[in-house]
Design a protein around this nucleic acid. Structure first.
Length: 782
DNA sequence: CCATTAACTG
């Protein structure tokens, strides 16, 4: 074939029309033969096409030998790497660009590299690229802005994202969509709706993505009103029949409990995608229609040709909140059969669901079997342990990660903080806080909320408040954590202040908000305040009380001694009282020594929850306190037959960051003799001051082993004595106990705080006690 | 695909 003189346009067209790699090689040869190998436009097009076809190595080879690359060519290469998911090479080309050339990056360059840094999770590099973009004058460009906002949202830093977003003069649809869906991903639903409302005010164009994203937020907040606004807008603009928009409505109605409408809308979706199916399945699960959920799931699985790893991963969020063993095993075996299990995303997803179902061993097995563990897989496993209360495993896995030099991300930090909180491990918690500071994770809402919870649960309520006060981004969970922290420490008035501020600032309240406030009130004896809030919850805020709210109310009345009122309340409840409600009454009966009512409550409990031996123990203790030893023994006999193992009490104290654990009657510690001598001295003083110990009265008719347990010195006394000996005069002592503190030890600690002039902070199984000058912050309510 | 808060008692 004779080649006629060809021009550049000929090659450009030829390259565009090429669909295979070998064809493109021939074209390249022609380009060289015809003397176009140094023509910038032709070579740029060639490189673009090569990378589109996935031949990234050919593309770079040509590029590196090209004499005078311009910025456009660099941008093409940078984007090619990103498109092939090779973000680190994309960034190294950027580095070459800055170091080896005099070219000045433009907004395209910044948009590409910022998103590469985002995908890689490089927070520090990301912020410095943000800086480069500002210096380079691209900081306010909508494309660059969208990339930067998306990056900060991806890093969980909603505050920075918002700062950047607010500065951009004319945010376009894509930028607003990024902000809306990113806020949703960060659990900040009302922020997301606010951005949408701003779009309406500013007249920004909407698209189906906008509506789909806002609907997710509206669904989470059960905001039917926002749904109505979106409905009329989307109908007017012709987006209403879009799959994603309809799916959004399905979720909204499902979350609001209207499954009829949800189903009806779902049926209008012509070709539902996996997200649509998921919305519907999740609607069924959260409205307890398990049979329907399983049916639809099987239908999805039957569409074999369309099921791949992302289908499975997509299904997982449906299971996550509720968990369902049958569905999970189905997915597991499906992925084994179809060789999808080695996909890390599928593995990780299954690890998560198994942990949610308390099947932590199955989760660990999957984790151990996966060869290339992604950060997400580590996180899934760590959070699985943390959520199941297996805090030691969570922490040791985290340490293993550190040893492997795998850098943690905010998700990791959040789970570890939750483990520290459960454990009361203040020094580890502080260390993790420092780490979070260094890595710039502090502004992440999850991290900061977990920090508040950690400090509160580790006894440092003031530090918790400090974190709370410095936050610019809070979500309802953050507020709830602060309220429950105050409740835990018996500071009900502070809890109420935070609650009122929430109301004033229009922060959406949740069911947990009310549980936390009511808990704070009942543990501080604020009966009237609690009562008012309960009625406001129903009347003003339109919440339907859940069983836990009823239980809180019974606890509120019962704890304060108003047992009759508690009973009247139970009888007036519109639903059948559950075990929590009767349990609250029973424990009140114990505190206020009402054996008759206790009998009534425990009969209900034995019926409602026959498996739970705890109620038998409680009833037995009530009889013991009533000096009805015969009755107590017979209740205990029932328990004996059911093989109850009592949790042994133990207390932890940290001295110079080293934890010491004491069990009751323990004599194995190095300083045992000194500890007992110290105790003897303190108890002597205490008796002189007229305190009497309560243990002897309970010793009638008790079996020998139990008698021994009662005479043994409780672990918290040992820990306190040890603490007194090993800390500076006048300093605070903090101890952590796994069970509730008994009346005798409570009195003892009060006394010690007075004679030694120490503040003693005790965390028991339920709450905090701050002992100072012979008084306890719990006001003897616990 | 991975993250935070509450709920009687033991």
């Amino acid at each position: 074939m004779i080649c006629r003189a060809v021009d550049r346009n000929f090659f450009l067209k030829l390259i565009s029309n090429t669909v295979t790699h070998s064809h493109l090689r021939q074209t390249h040869a022609q380009i060289i033969l015809n003397g176009f190998k140094s023509d910038l436009a032709t070579i740029t097009k060639l490189i673009q096409k090569l990378s589109d076809l996935g031949s990234i190595s050919d593309a770079t080879l040509i590029c590196s030998t090209f004499p005078n690359p311009d910025l456009f060519l660099y941008n093409v290469v940078i984007r090619s790497f990103s498109r092939n998911n090779d973000h680190s090479n994309s960034l190294s080309i950027y580095r070459q660009l800055r170091q080896n050339t005099a070219l000045v990056p433009d907004s395209f360059t910044y948009a590409f590299v910022v998103s590469a840094a985002s995908k890689l999770g490089c927070t520090k590099l990301g912020s410095s690229l943000h800086g480069h973009a500002i210096v380079g004058g691209s900081g306010l460009d909508v494309f660059v802005g969208a990339a930067i906002v998306d990056m900060y949202l991806n890093f969980g830093n909603l505050g920075y994202a918002h700062k950047v977003f607010d500065k951009i003069p004319q945010p376009d649809t894509v930028l607003c969509n990024t902000m809306i869906s990113g806020s949703v991903k960060n659990g900040c639903f009302s922020e997301s709706i606010l951005v949408f409302k701003d779009m309406i005010l500013r007249g920004t164009r909407f698209d189906s993505t906008t509506f789909a994203a806002v609907l997710t937020a509206a669904a989470e907040l059960q905001e039917l009103k926002v749904g109505m606004v979106i409905e009329s807008l989307s109908i007017k603009l012709g987006f209403h029949w879009h799959v994603h928009v309809l799916t959004g409505f399905v979720s909204l109605y499902a979350k609001c409990g209207d499954m009829l409408t949800a189903r009806c809308l779902f049926e209008q979706i012509e070709r539902p995608d996996i997200i649509a199916y998921n919305a519907m399945i999740s609607g069924f699960t959260c409205n307890q229609q398990m049979a329907n959920a399983v049916d639809l799931f099987n239908k999805v699985m039957a569409l074999q040709h369309r099921v791949n790893s992302s289908t499975l991963v997509g299904l997982i969020p449906v299971l996550n909140p509720f968990g369902h063993l049958i569905l999970t095993s189905a997915i597991h075996s499906f992925s084994l059969k179809n060789n999808l299990i080695s996909k890390t995303s599928v593995g990780t997803a299954l690890i998560t669901v198994y942990s949610r179902l308390n099947e932590i061993d199955s989760a660990r097995k999957l984790f151990d079997e996966s060869l290339n563990k992604s950060l997400a897989a580590w996180n899934a496993m760590i959070s699985g342990y943390a959520q199941n209360g297996i805090t030691d495993k969570a922490i040791s896995l985290f340490q293993e990660m550190q040893n492997f030099k795998i850098p943690p991300n905010p998700t990791t930090i959040t789970s570890i903080l939750s483990a520290c909180a459960q454990l009361g491990a203040l020094s580890l918690g502080k260390w993790v806080h420092d780490l979070a500071r260094k890595e710039n994770f502090e502004s992440n809402v999850y991290v900061s909320t977990a920090l508040i919870d950690m400090y509160a649960k580790c006894g440092s309520i003031n530090e918790a408040r400090q974190v709370f006060d410095t936050l610019t981004q809070k979500n309802p969970v953050t507020w709830n954590a602060m309220i429950s922290g105050y409740g835990l420490h018996g500071h009900a008035h502070e809890a109420l202040k935070i609650f009122n501020k929430m109301v004033d600032l229009n922060v959406p309240l949740t069911g947990v908000t009310f549980v936390s406030v009511l808990y704070a009130c009942s543990h501080a004896g604020l009966v009237n305040e609690g009562e008012q809030i309960f009625y406001k919850m129903v009347g003003d805020h339109g919440f339907k009380p859940l069983p836990e709210h009823y239980a809180c109310m019974v606890d509120l009345y019962g704890r304060s001694g108003e047992l009759q009122k508690a009973l009247t309340f139970i009888n007036s409840m519109p639903v059948d009282p559950g075990p929590a409600t009767w349990g609250a009454l029973l424990s009140a009966c114990k505190t206020h020594k009402n054996t008759d009512l206790a009998r009534l409550a425990s009969d209900k409990l034995f019926e409602l929850d026959p498996e739970n031996v705890g109620y038998h123990v409680l009833l037995s203790n009530i009889h013991t306190a009533d000096k009805n030893y015969h009755e107590a023994a017979s209740v205990r006999q029932v328990v004996k037959n059911q093989n109850l193992v009592k949790t042994p009490g133990c207390t932890l104290i940290e001295i110079n960051k080293i934890p010491h654990v004491f069990t009751s009657g323990q004599r194995s510690h190095d300083q045992t003799d000194a500890i007992y001598a110290m105790l003897e001295k303190l108890m002597g003083k205490m008796r002189e001051a007229g305190f009497q110990t309560d243990t002897v009265t309970a010793l009638h008719d008790v079996e020998d082993e139990e008698k021994e347990l009662m005479v043994k010195v409780h672990s918290e006394k040992l820990a306190i004595a040890f603490g007194l000996m090993n800390t500076e005069t006048g300093s605070e002592i903090r101890i952590m106990k796994n069970l509730r503190v008994c009346i005798d030890c409570h009195n003892f600690t009060k006394f010690v705080s007075k004679v030694t002039e120490r503040v003693i902070v005790v965390r028991d199984a339920n709450r905090f006690h701050h002992f100072k000058d012979g008084q306890c912050s719990c006001g003897d309510y616990w």
